[in-house]
């Protein structure tokens, strides 16, 4: 028994003294750091660096082109003018193009109104004829029963 105890104590002491060797501790630290902080892609940063000024320049160019095209004499231009009855916070945009479109819209609107009138008229007629037919059928049925 004592022998076993001594053996046990010796064994535990030795196991205690022998520390497992951590091979490549730096590698383990690196893997831990990589796991908590995945490396950011530098490419995205560099791409953003030169994409931003390019996009800014392109937007300025397009805006300039837009202005240039709309100030040409031959093309209809946009003016912001006061309307007959101006309201606060409201601006009326008038142009040749819009006026032309307005007349087309008005024409279509009147046609639609006409169409709606016909529709309503037809609906009324249909309703009347339906009632008439129902009356006739009921009369016919009462005659048969008598």
């Amino acid at each position: 028994m004592e022998n076993t105890d001594k053996k046990y104590n010796d064994l535990v002491n030795k196991l205690n003294r022998i520390n497992p060797q951590l091979i490549n501790p730096m590698g383990l630290t690196d893997s831990i750091m990589a796991a908590i902080h995945p490396p950011e892609k530098n490419t995205s940063k560099t791409v953003m660096l030169w994409i931003r000024p390019i996009l800014a320049a392109a937007s300025v160019f397009l805006f300039g082109l837009f202005l240039y095209q709309h100030t040409d004499e031959n093309t209809p231009y946009i003016i912001i003018a006061e309307s007959d009855r101006p309201k606060i916070g409201q601006a009326f945009i008038l142009s040749n193009c819009f006026e032309q479109n307005n007349s087309e819209i008005k024409e279509t609107k009147s046609r639609m109104q006409q169409y709606l009138c016909y529709m309503r008229h037809n609906e009324q007629l249909n309703q009347k004829s339906k009632l008439f037919l129902l009356k006739q059928i009921s009369k016919y049925q009462t005659n048969i029963s008598h």
Binding site: L15, N19, P20, L22, I23, P25, L28, T29, S31, I32, A35, I36
Partner: peptide
């Protein structure tokens, strides 16, 4: 990390498992 590795190695008796535990511990 060496102390954590020591505990994990003595428990699991495997280097790879011990390293995994160290990593997971620090995460």
């Amino acid at each position: 990390q060496a102390r954590v590795y020591s505990l994990a190695f003595r428990m699991l008796c495997n280097e790879d498992d011990a390293k995994d535990v160290v990593q997971e511990t620090y995460i």
